[in-house]
Design a protein around this nucleic acid. Structure first.
Lengths: 152, 152
DNA sequence: ACCAGTAAGTCCGATAACTGGACGTACAGG
DNA sequence: CCTGTACGTCCAGTTATCGGACTTACTGGT
């Protein structure tokens, strides 16, 4: 019973996907990054069913990715804003977008251009925080850690 | 009819998620990155229903993310391998993992440690390919592009 | 030859999730 | 009073996912 690297693997990718992996969740987050913080806008820009959008926003708020704030009391109006955790999802959005730009544009121009404050069109490179080099899968060695099984 | 920035927004994030956004898809890819290239292994390590795994692998192969290769003809056995497009999903996996490590570990150690070839534990930073600075959402200005609508 | 085991799926009935649209409520503006 | 907008909820129909049993094709032992 010592080879207990649990069988459905415990993994941060899986945990993250439990929150942002449901349909429409990341598109809602994308819209907030693009400045569309209101329910109806998100519905329109993503194409998600209102019902589903409601459910996703609830999950995202509960998970601490978004905050729901009233912006007007008297026509009761709300905004969804990114928390720090939400802002930290930017690399996820960017890398998904980058991949789509690379492999799914079918020769046509990319649907959206991002301009970085340095003045150039944004290209994202995921780098190692220690050495600064771009991260390639073959340069990374994974070591699963034992579950804290109650072995005193 | 000129304000045609299409209503369900055309977007590379959405396009990418159509391929890798279904349940279990990215976990299957994760397993291949971890070296588990066989059907049964992926089922065991992810916990996905066999049925669903079959469907996901078909989609991923059709999309050019994975390749299904026979590794033995006579007990008929197969391996799923990453194509270049698949390898380029590494930043997506890494950034999802990093977020989970940061926000979903509940004080406990991270379930997996990645060691970079530089000798240090991997921390990923998404940087601008032009200036090298870490990318923050507030430093990026998005410009949607007009659909190629058949004007003129 | 027979039995057990493994790999890679397929098949199935039950449950859960998503879908599109109608509807409700609360207000503003004319 | 009537229209319009924002933010949802509700519902019935469709689709997806679930877990487990089953199939096919072998290998290796006894």
């Amino acid at each position: 019973m010592t080879t207990n690297l649990t069988e459905p693997r415990t993994c941060s990718v899986a945990r993250t996907l439990e929150i942002v992996g449901e349909k429409w969740a990341l598109l809602a987050v994308r819209e907030v990054f693009l400045g569309n913080r209101r329910f109806d806008e998100m519905v329109r820009k993503t194409g998600a069913p209102r019902d589903t959008m409601t459910a996703r926003l609830k999950t995202l708020v509960a998970a601490g990715v978004l905050e729901r704030q009233p912006v007007s009391a008297h026509p009761p109006r709300f905004e969804y804003r990114l928390t720090q955790a939400g802002l930290d999802l930017y690399p996820v959005i960017i890398s998904l977008m980058q991949w789509g730009d690379r492999y799914l544009t079918n020769g046509e121009p990319t649907p959206m251009v991002l301009t970085h404050s340095c003045g150039h069109t944004l290209g994202a490179v995921t780098t190692c925080s220690s050495c600064g080099d771009p991260i390639l899968a073959r340069d990374v060695r994974p070591t699963p850690r034992r579950e804290k099984d109650n072995d005193l």
